[in-house]
Design a protein around this nucleic acid. Structure first.
Lengths: 108, 108
DNA sequence: CCAATTCATAACTATTGGGTTATAAATAAA
DNA sequence: TTTATTTATAACCCAATAGTTATGAATTGG
């Protein structure tokens, strides 16, 4: 079910602090938990939990180096979101064109 | 704050039944509350509440006709979502190119 | 070895939010 | 006018979740 993937993505990105973490990783590249926590506005455990959820959604990847964990964004995971959005817009435009055609036929 | 708009959109579309209502309106065009309720899988008050939230987010518009309320999708409201997604992908690609350039310079 | 640092997990709390039933308000029909 | 239909709102309940503090596990440095 593809709608499952969309659901996970929307739910994951619905939280502002979580979305802010992902945005920072997109902008600044790879960062440690400590660096992310410094500007997150919430505690370190909260940041770790959010990163775990982002990881489960496939939006970030991590690798360990000594006692630090580095996280980086995985923006490919945004593709289903892009697909859904364009599809919704597409449905609407198709309907719009159908209506346009109908009006044209009625005009004849 | 544009991030406010994004927050509202993500939060609004994070709920599956609410997103399903929006999808149906995109596919099928204008529908009444009754028609939407028939296939929603939840009660009519639940549907009304969801439609109210979608309306506040600007994702749907309504108009009254007799005792029925007709709802239709307003897919233009998805634009900030599209902007955010492409922007995140853009940030990442820019960083990717920077890295690529760095590697090229190191290669010389 | 011992202390300090970095991150993840556990346990708990409070709030949010989506669902329900009951009911009100408005319109249509009999 | 009375009854039936359609939608919105109110009041309430339960589950999910984002936050906290406390602590454990792993690694580094003295």
């Amino acid at each position: 079910m593809i709608t499952q993937t969309q659901d996970i993505l929307f739910k994951t990105l619905a939280d502002p602090t979580r979305r802010a973490l992902f945005e920072r990783l997109c902008r600044d590249g790879e960062l440690t938990v400590g660096a992310l926590t410094a500007d997150a506005g919430v505690s370190q455990p909260a940041v770790s939990k959010h990163l775990g959820i982002l990881k489960q959604a496939g939006l970030v990847r991590d690798h360990h180096q000594g006692r630090q964990t580095h996280y980086r964004a995985q923006p490919d995971a945004l593709e289903p979101l892009l697909d859904w959005t364009t599809q919704m817009a597409g449905f609407w435009h198709r309907r719009f064109n159908e209506l346009e055609d109908l009006l044209k036929r009625m005009d004849q």
